[in-house]
Design a protein around this nucleic acid. Structure first.
Lengths: 100, 100
DNA sequence: TCTATAGTTCGATATAATTCGAACAATAGC
DNA sequence: GCTATTGTTCGAATTATATCGAACTATAGA
């Protein structure tokens, strides 16, 4: 499967990041990635249809919040937390500090 | 005109705050309030139709981000930044620190 | 090659949000 | 009371998002 397009961190929009994280499902995905470091899409499905989950990953990816790489038939996702800290310092930590 | 309903700060949802701030118009309103302390709705209209601006103020108000009080025929808006800092410490500062 | 696994993409439907004009409400000042 | 000023609310049109099944792609392993 082809590689994904990830935006350069410098072209990531604050509005897009806030929008992506305003969805409960996407926020829970991000929280889980923060806890576990990285995870496949399947590990974050939680019984939802794959197509829905795939959509949410795409939103997170295009917003610049996660990075997805291929590993066999799986996609491994991880937060771009260090990069995000460069452009939006303190933002992700402030969000992740909120109790779910 | 009757008073507005403002949510208790403890019942403010992170998702709602992020969503409210993901709109460029609302974000610019919040930035202006952060700079100027408080302002009427008219001062933040920037040529847009009043009904649209009123809508955005309502979203910000119901998300728990601003407080609106009556002053004659005007409504004076201010950020609930101190309260927000109690429940989402560092969030608003991180957002406001981003260059517009 | 055949099959299972892991996701993506498409398409259709449903739901929600935005936008803005028009009508309305409340206050101030004359 | 009349008028101007400020904003709200309503309603309708447009646009955006979410959801999910079905078809598809790509890889791994037997």
């Amino acid at each position: 499967m082809r590689e994904y397009r990830h935006p350069q961190i410098t072209e990531v929009q604050l509005e897009s990041v806030l929008y992506a994280l305003s969805d409960p499902i996407r926020l829970s995905i991000v929280r889980q990635l923060a806890r576990e470091g990285e995870a496949s899409c399947a590990a974050l499905e939680n019984g939802r249809p794959k197509s829905s989950v795939s959509h949410h990953f795409r939103v997170l990816r295009e917003a610049g919040i996660i990075k997805t790489r291929n590993d066999g038939t799986s996609r491994i996702n991880e937060l771009r937390d260090n990069e995000l800290a460069e452009v939006f310092p303190g933002l992700l930590p402030a969000i992740l500090a909120v109790r779910s």
